[in-house]
Write a protein that binds this DNA or RNA. Sequence first.
RNA 1: GGAGAGAUGGCUGAGCGGUUGAAAGCACCGGUCUUGAAAACCGGCAAAGGGGCAACUCUUUCCUGGGUUCGAAUCCCAGUCUCUCCGCCA
Length: 419
Amino acid sequence: MHNLKEIRKNFDGFKKGLKKRFVDIDFDKLEDLDKNNRELIQKKELLEKEKKDISKSKDKSLFAKSKDISENIERINEKQKLIQKSLDDILSNIPNIPHNDVPEGKNETDNIEINKSGTIRKFDFTPSSHYKIGEKLGMLDFDLATKTTGSRFVFVKNKLALLERALSNFMLDTHIKKNGYEEISPPLLASEATMFGTGQLPKFENDQFEVKLEEGTDRKFLIPTAEVILTNIVKDKIIDIKSLPMRFVASTPCFRKEAGSYGKDTKGMIRQHQFYKVEMVSIVEQDKCSDELERMTNCATGILDLLELPYRKMILCSGDMGFSAEKTYDIEVWLPSENRYREISSCSSCSTFQAFRMKARYKDQTKGTLYAGTLNGSGLAVGRTLIAILENYQEKDGTITIPKVLRPYMNNLEKISLN
RNA sequence: GGAGAGAUGGCUGAGCGGUUGAAAGCACCGGUCUUGAAAACCGGCAAAGGGGCAACUCUUUCCUGGGUUCGAAUCCCAGUCUCUCCGCCA
């Protein structure tokens, strides 16, 4: 969320920054409400002062007057709270302002490739899709998931289940031992406030799975990504600057409704309601965001390098970025069956956007109390990594060669085959 | 599920109707001392919001939301969370 105080200082700059996002915001209304709000606050404070003075004087003759003032304050307060609420409603639905580096563009077609890495394998047969391979091996079962649960779920079985687990462990180990992240095994449910903190609420409620609880109790949601719960570790906190940067990593299931993606990637496990993802989160001093984003992105691509999977790095255009992001790199892995790259990781700097929502701050010696910078990135999406391995490491006979770095995690198994 | 106890600043913790934004300690920052460091001593140190070019100033905030009162951290009600005991269950 944006700080109204900062917006006020440079309203035109604010408008201009958001123009890149192609969002429809009633700026005039925002400005009006703010002006109105401040007038009411001033009125209220004047009366409050008067009341306070009477109370301090303990002069009984003034008590009746004080009561009058109280009523007056109450009236103004009602009005002011209403305006404040409209103001908050508008503000909490405004996305982050794109960083200067971010190219202007409408949608994913305007994203820009930064570089490619790895070699694309030449097949002497037509490469099969991951779901065909998986089903033939009897280790991916979509029909069974439909029976027990519904669409967009999958049973991963046998050696592929082991591969999935191996991938999680391999990624976690790498980020923990090599990249300095602290391992976390977090709750998979998040409160409403937590979901607000990272920006999933209020605007994207439709994408979230909410858990049904007794009426009147606080709402809870299945996390759509560990980013939500890891980032909120610093919610409502004044962080000791010495503990920055903080880096967390977790492997968790993620739950998404995928509303509005009907007909998109209906086959296979590219787009599921539930999937495992290894997520990295960094909390940094606010001026360190850009450096940390590069570092984090390298942590993500490092995994692909080790797995020897070909990929490319994209910078997202303004129109394709997530709500809370100021700058995002997508890492796309090569999928032979589709003959194209598909997203396998997304690393974003959210500048102070989430920190302001969460009230996550630290004290800087010269600059006072500052909002922290928050970053998140997949390192990597485990389900999609599984797909990439199935497709890139498939052999003509339907078997899968296991990448060398994963073998220690799979009892030194070298190949996945029917037997 | 039954019975209690509690929630105060970065942390620990006092206060339980009237300059209490809040004692004390720790942490942190500045200084004196020291060859340097430690210790000791002195000083500083909450956040959010409003006004002001600024110095500064005002308001709010002691879990959240209501209420009582001229006045609430302190009393009442509701909610959230934490802890202890009993029961139940991984």
